[in-house]
Design a protein around this nucleic acid. Structure first.
Length: 595
RNA sequence: GGUUCCGUAGCUCAGUUGGAUAGAGCAACAGCCUUCUAAGCUGUGGGUCGCGCGUUCGAGUCGCGCCGGAAUCACCA
């Protein structure tokens, strides 16, 4: 509809002023509610062409449109704004057109589509997932669906940080304190089991450091010389040297963690096409660094450590290999990036990683470019904000976190309580009820997280549970369930729809509002993909559902006696259902048939 | 201190490439179920868009400077 108007205005200007107008001078937007009209042309930029006042320019164009464009039934001019009125019947035709499109809102993936690798999740194998990881996983997964729906070829990937000093900490603590206990022997989920030893390590390490300080050490010396830290360092050296017993322990503990992660990923509903392990990629990283050192792009210091000097790019020198030859975090990321490029020849590589690592990703891309990898220009750090608690940020070292598994369980439990209180889901089996409550609880959680602008920090208050009313996931799910219910009833009573033509049908204002919003869906998906913002989808769905609920409240669908109108409303409802379901899908949220 | 990000109603958040009188939800209060699901709908109150200057016909949006908060600048990841 907007394009139609754009064309009309271009023609108007050519005819009136004998100029072909540059498209970005045509500012067309939706008419604000307080004014009459559907679409508004801002006339100020056009005064340069018309050499008339904005009001007169708007009036000229308005008159031309009314005469020459069939869909335009009238106009008004307020200040420099030309409010164009689209004849109501056009919207009915528009509904028919879009509801007959296959895969409305999707762009099919052609042979020359961009290849985008999206990395998200990226857990450490020393502790279970918490709320921060949930935000990461939900953003990454939703982005993958949005970008793929916008026509890109997507590879969802994960890098498992399965090696390094932090893993050794859990291993050391287990050796010292576990007496051979396992997840099986304690009945614990594997990731939680291992995480407890990590927390135990940190606790005892802190005590040891404090004792050393009391005995006269400086805090730095104490941190370096505490027996637990020495043991962890020793463990890391043995691991990198391939010590059999160490590797065996490492394998065993990681396998416990993976079993736990699988459960959490499944509960969250996220998936990956390809998983990389740091323990596989860090060696490539070391080779890259050594080769680049030989080629003279890097510096080796007297103690043997290897650095890159990025001071020309206003950054510091950055360590790439320790003096003892072991790899640091960025070493493996260099290796991983090169391996991935060889695997997929991506056009873009999106890293979904928190904003605390902004510096890291600046260094990563620059280092790869210095090493001669031109494609590193396609690396993009999707930097999202932290999830904070009312008392500040979460601290996994101290065990002060909102655990992912706990939170998912709590959300489902809340959904269950509400469902009971509201007397819903009568006639369903316990399994069916549980399934629906899980969808709703997760819907509330996912929407809560995805509706906020990714780059902003967000606060989560565990004391106030996430809402199920208002601007929430369940609100949108509920709207969907209502529609399903109507359509089901239509089927049961033998009412079919979609057979009428709406050429002479004049929709009411509520219906027109709904159609206008539905009409925006494809451009919204594109925008969400280019802006990389699930929040745009979330907020759009809310507006959409709210608008539909008003219509639903004010008018009867199945009770409508005029067959043509009833057909039209069913069609409107069906399209609404499709768009809501697809929109929720883009966010990784399931749409229940009933709730 | 350097760099990056954020600051909109009591709280949580929207606010299109700069456009008209800045919007939702929650919380509070008042209404609406004999009718397709009330997890819904309607209404009331609530604002120095952190502060200032500039660019512009027009600034919550762009630029500069302050103020406040966060992250980072590790031989941690």
């Amino acid at each position: 509809m907007e394009n139609l108007l754009r064309k009309g205005v271009t023609e108007a200007i050519r005819s009136l002023y004998n100029v072909s107008v540059n498209d970005d001078l045509l500012q067309i937007q939706k008419t604000r509610k307080e004014f009459t009209g559907d679409l508004t042309l801002v006339a100020f930029p056009l005064t340069r062409i018309s050499h008339k006042s904005p009001e007169l320019t708007a009036k000229d164009i308005g008159e031309f449109l009314t005469q020459h464009v069939e869909a335009v039934s009238g106009f008004n001019v307020i200040k420099g704004f030309l409010n164009v009125i689209i004849s109501s019947g056009e919207w009915a035709k528009q509904l028919k057109i879009i509801s007959e499109q296959k895969e409305y809102g999707s762009v099919s993936t052609g042979p020359d589509a961009s290849v985008i690798v999206i990395e998200y999740s990226s857990p450490n194998t020393n502790k279970p997932l918490h709320l921060g990881h949930i935000r990461n996983n939900l953003l990454g997964y939703s982005l993958s669906r949005i970008c793929s729906t916008a026509g890109n070829k997507i590879i969802r990937t994960n890098i498992v940080n399965d090696r390094g000093i932090h893993i050794c900490k859990s291993m050391v603590a287990w050796q010292l304190y576990a007496n051979g206990a396992t997840p099986a022997s304690t009945g614990m989920k594997g990731d939680h089991f291992v995480g407890d030893y990590y927390v135990l390590f940190e606790k005892n390490y802190r005590e040891q450091s404090e004792a050393l300080v009391d005995a006269g050490s400086t805090p730095e010396e104490a941190r370096d010389n505490a027996p637990l830290m020495l043991a962890a360092r020793q463990m890391l050296l043995k691991w990198e040297a391939g010590d059999e017993e160490t590797v065996k322990l490492w394998n065993m503990m990681n396998s416990w963690v993976y079993e736990g992660f699988d459960v959490t990923y499944k509960a969250l509903g996220v998936e990956f096409d390809k998983i990389y392990y740091e323990s596989d990629t860090y060696k490539t990283g070391k080779e890259l660094v050594l080769r680049s050192l030989a080629e003279g792009q890097l510096i080796r210091k007297d103690d043997g450590s290897v650095w890159i000097d990025l001071s020309d790019d206003k950054l510091d020198q950055k360590l790439l290999l320790r003096s003892d030859g072991t790899a640091v975090y960025i070493t493996q990321d260099l290796g991983t990036a090169v391996i991935r490029y060889n695997d997929y020849h991506f056009d873009r590589h999106i890293y979904v990683v928190g904003n605390e690592q902004n510096y890291h990703f600046q260094v990563l891309a620059l280092t790869l470019l210095r090493m001669g990898y031109k494609w590193a220009a396609g690396l993009l750090h999707f930097s999202y904000g932290m999830v904070e608690l009312p008392e500040g940020r979460m601290k996994s070292r101290e065990g002060k976190v909102v655990d992912a598994d706990d939170l998912i369980d709590e959300m489902t439990a809340t959904a269950r309580t509400m469902s009971q209180e509201l007397g819903k889901l009568g006639g369903y089996s316990d399994t069916e009820k549980e399934n629906i409550c899980r969808k709703i609880g997760l819907g509330a959680l996912k929407y809560f997280i995805l509706k906020v602008d990714p780059k902003k920090n967000m606060t989560f208050n565990p004391a106030e549970s996430i809402d199920f009313n208002g601007n929430t996931g369940p609100f949108i799910q509920y709207t969907y369930a209502r529609i399903r219910s109507v359509l089901k009833k239509a089927g049961e009573t033998g009412i079919s729809f979609g057979g009428e033509n709406y050429d002479d049908l004049i929709p009411n204002p509520k219906e027109i509002n709904v159609i206008k919003l539905l009409n925006d869906f494809p451009s919204l998906v594109k925008e969400a993909a280019s802006e990389l913002s699930p929040a745009l989808i979330a907020n759009y769905l809310y507006d959409l559902a709210r608008e539909f609920n008003q219509f639903y409240h004010d008018f009867s669908i199945l009770g409508e006696e005029n067959k043509k109108v009833r057909d039209f409303r069913l069609r409107l409802s069906a399209l609404m259902g499709t768009v809501l379901e697809k929109g929720l899908w883009l966010l990784g949220i399931e749409a229940p048939e009933r709730m």
